[in-house]
Design a binder for these strands. Sequence first.
DNA 1: GGGGCAATCCTGTAAAAAGGGGATTTTTGG
DNA 2: CCAAAAATCCCCTTTTTACAGGATTGCCCC
Lengths: 207, 207
Amino acid sequence: MKPVRILIVDDHYIVVEGIRSLLQRVSAVEILGSASDAESCMRFLDRRIPDLILLDISLPHTSGIDLCKAIHEKYPRIRILGLSTFKEQSFVRNMLDNGASGYVLKNAGIDELMIAIQTAMKGGKYLSDEVAAALTDQQIDPAAPVITRREKEVLNLIAEGYTNNEIAGRLFVSVTTVDSHRKNLLTKFGAGNTAALVKLAVKMQII
Amino acid sequence: MKPVRILIVDDHYIVVEGIRSLLQRVSAVEILGSASDAESCMRFLDRRIPDLILLDISLPHTSGIDLCKAIHEKYPRIRILGLSTFKEQSFVRNMLDNGASGYVLKNAGIDELMIAIQTAMKGGKYLSDEVAAALTDQQIDPAAPVITRREKEVLNLIAEGYTNNEIAGRLFVSVTTVDSHRKNLLTKFGAGNTAALVKLAVKMQII
DNA sequence: GGGGCAATCCTGTAAAAAGGGGATTTTTGG
DNA sequence: CCAAAAATCCCCTTTTTACAGGATTGCCCC
């Protein structure tokens, strides 16, 4: 069987070296090379097509999620495995929605990595246990609520310290509209007042 | 010259492998071993004392910052280099305050890592360029104001969503007192209202 | 083409916070 | 011991939010 040809995309030199070192010992895979950002990744793909890409989520300039999407659209046959320190539900979901074949945490060992690669190559999806757990957990306590674009705008302005009146002026809408959005935000976040709302939003990294 | 004996503490297997692979080629260092959390690190130190520890910030259970403190108190002669993806000012500051000899980002190359190690061993402090930049940036805008213990208590309760009235009840003081603290907080943070206050406080990691 | 959702607007009351004044007692540090 | 800082308390006015109801438009998707 031909080895799986792999491209590593990660801006952390140490991580790239780690993966290289781990996979070098395995004959079933062949490392074609590595890239440290979206641009160099796309340039690489202009020349050579790997079977699978190990893709870090947090890249400079373009995020791994956007890059995942771009790769998947241009080269639908390349399998993509998300790779990250974080098991944030939203990251994982976004990666999978954008065509990734799985998501592996950086504390994975060689065994897990190989299983993920093989699963992906067979057309399956692989998620680290913890990731899968985080994903299902999420439905139990509904972490970050879904808010609309407009609500997010209002939320940002609230957190900046603008009053309903000022926000209404900025967004060219009536004060009552802003108040409605605010009320919805309080409900969605389960916050009793603005202070609690802002705290939750900042902690959840929405702001 | 005797090689620098190093312990790697990181819960990311891949990162550990990366560092190993990088440093194996260098004769000036010797990797004693690795640990994946605070507990196993301390157990390791019961048996063997390295010259230097490469310490990841984000560890399970106990944070790298706490571990740094613990190591530094028990083994003041061991040099500690912080290692992380993040260049958050507060992390860096905390590490340095707790006895670390430097802070290296995970996108560092072997050259940078070796310079950091050598600088640390000579008693100096090494910071990645980006980290140093983030640190000095911070001093330009007057970061976190000095607040009193009581003000912090009040601030926390405000952020939890309690009203002045409720806070007064909890702290067994009058509402006017709480209001005074609140007013002082607004002034100290330069915030126009509670929302802005809470946002700043959370972002500055005070909450 | 109808259901759902987002975004918009409305009325009204009660509660809370912001703003601007002080004043008094503890702590705490030099 | 004394001064400065912190913590406590008070009054008053205006502005802003919170809470409780609705109602209307437009848009997207099935």
